[in-house]
Design a protein around this nucleic acid. Structure first.
Lengths: 340, 340
DNA sequence: GCGGGTTCTGGGAGCGCTCCCAGACGGGGA
DNA sequence: TCCCCGTCTGGGAGCGCTCCCAGAACCCGC
């Protein structure tokens, strides 16, 4: 704003080159970590950069280069916002943490249901080098579509309609398995579950873990009630269903804390004491778990770590690393509180 | 990736110009909504853009132009993540919604306590045209510092150390006032409050509202307990303090749902029936309010709207609009549930 | 009729980088 | 000895736009 055509402040690559006594080509090579630069030049450039406080211009790099220096974080949120919120914030924190220091910008996209093709066009249009897709709804075709265009993609959560899309997810199966084993170790003998919706991978995997845990002790796996979405109301509804079918159940593994809140409400209303009559284990270790009455024993998943790992995986692919694992599961852990 | 030097796909401004039968200067004018373009040219350009599916290259615009075409969303989170999460997600959703369609990118920054000056340097270094700052901690100097460098800034929440920084906030004062009036209308006569920490504006404003509501009915305003942070434990601690000082209180206005959860726990434990013995009103209308036992009457603030409004205000300033209000308060509303 | 505006237009420099090319230098193997 | 290849370097074109400039076309009042 000072002269006619206001230039951005700060030194340019040319000044770094002058101070370091090399050409701007060499400075560029150092910045981009290319080989074929002598140790002497590299040092000189680093000193000059530090001295001048130089920071490369993102727009210029992107314009001149063959990459966008940006990745997209796409949040497909079809309803179920309640679950989405804390989850989403954790993911974002993780992604952000992993990105700091690298010269990569984060582009946020939350898709309204409508703009599916626009979004694909934008993402594959060279504005970003890759995409992180978090679809809560497991059958979302977006990860697969993007993957098929050749855009590097990492999905957060196992995509049901995923094809060969690389993904990172919490180890929902073993988390559920651990929860069930815990219930069994407490001597519970009639263990039900409130599962997630049919169309979400996270629900399916947790259900499998529950089944497996019971099966390995020769216990029956019939007491399943599916929730229609991740709300307390849906959890309450499922709990009522279970109690109708088995009034004498002594434990419930609930696929999400937010469902468990509804289930607890029903159990209280019917006069069941927790954990004396019925032990309850949730999943997620969200705020709700610690604020529930009684505080909920739950399976903790580290959402921030999930965000970090997705980002790491995508950046590694962009850097041309090979032999990357196509999928990764992150450990979960049981958090013991009062409810089981 | 197809030829030696892989170009980004899609048409360039030059092709639009050719198709429209004008020069690229004119196309540029149309895109940027400048005047001095004939209606005929404007129409032709718009047709050409639609036909070719043209979308301007962000990097090139930024490099050539005198603005960055990007704004930053800075989240200052010093602890208190619990409150931060849903709040944060709502803000982000609002900001994003307001940004779609405009050619402005969103840059996310979450500041670690350490990198204060780096952050200021980056923000004022021409990478962004303006900043939205959400500091939960009211005495954060960042909004003021940025504002003083001349960077357009809008703060989310009234900054305590704000100077003349424009801000958008929920009308915490009137929200609290309404809550107290509601309690009084229920016939409550000994109304306490659990206030937020001293150093956060949101806490102070809600406390003032409570005071005012009591004062206008000539009721005493002594029953205040400050929480140290926004956690259920802190709420429980404050509730215990209040009960020690006034075992016969019949209502509590709690400055945040998450504090109310802790307060409810203590009240239950002491055998108080809610709302029969003690009516409780929270603030925020977060998930916690509906999952609490009993479901919490609370003051709803529209966090997404807050994000939208902040963004609108910043963009208006960037567009050179004058006579903008320096601060704006958004309405709150009382959500009645079982607790009061 | 002429000067002085306002409205509209195209040409082209240049934003700050990357990446291609051409070339300099050195250390082997033939 | 010569040549080739691997290492290192600088020069400079050009990425796709914006914005300045110069000028054309047209209106107005005198």
């Amino acid at each position: 704003m000072t002269e006619g055509r206001s230039r951005r402040p700060g030194p340019r690559i040319e000044e770094v080159a002058r101070v370091a006594g090399v050409s701007k080509s060499t400075v560029s090579r150092v910045i981009n970590g290319e080989k074929y630069v002598s140790e002497r030049s590299r040092q000189a450039v680093h000193r000059a950069i530090a001295m001048l406080g130089y920071s490369p211009n993102h727009a210029a790099r992107t314009l001149a280069g063959s990459k966008a220096n940006a990745i997209a974080l796409v949040i497909s949120e079809q309803g179920s916002q309640v679950l989405a919120d804390p989850f989403f914030a954790g993911i974002l924190r993780g992604v952000h943490a992993e990105l700091t220091g690298r010269h990569v910008q984060l582009l946020l996209m939350m898709n309204q249901p409508l703009d599916g093709e626009d979004q694909v066009a934008y993402l594959t249009g060279g504005h970003v080098d890759g995409a992180l897709v978090v679809s809560l709804h497991g059958e979302d075709p977006l990860p697969r579509i993007l993957h098929e265009t050749g855009l590097p993609v990492v999905s957060g959560g196992r995509p049901l309609a995923g094809g060969a899309v690389p993904f990172v997810d919490a180890d929902n199966f073993n988390g559920a398995l651990g929860a069930v084993r815990h219930l069994i170790s407490l001597g519970r003998e009639k263990i039900a579950t409130i599962a997630g919706p049919h169309d979400m991978a996270v629900g399916m995997d947790r259900l499998s873990g529950w089944r497996c845990g019971l099966a390995e002790h020769g216990m029956p796996v019939g007491l399943v009630a599916h929730s229609s979405d991740f709300t307390p109301e849906s959890g309450a509804f499922a709990m009522e269903d279970l109690l109708r079918r088995a009034p004498d159940l002594d434990a419930v593994f609930v696929a999400a804390d937010i469902l468990a809140v509804g289930a607890l409400r029903v159990l209280h209303a019917r006069g069941y004491r927790i954990p004396h009559d019925v032990a309850v284990v949730g999943f997620d270790d969200s705020v709700l778990a610690s604020t529930a009455t009684p505080p909920l024993t739950t399976v903790r998943q580290d959402v921030e770590q999930l965000g970090r790992t997705m980002t790491w995986r995508l950046l590694a692919e962009l850097a041309g690393e090979e032999k990357l694992p196509s999928s990764m599961l992150l450990p979960t852990s049981l958090v013991r509180r009062a409810s089981a």
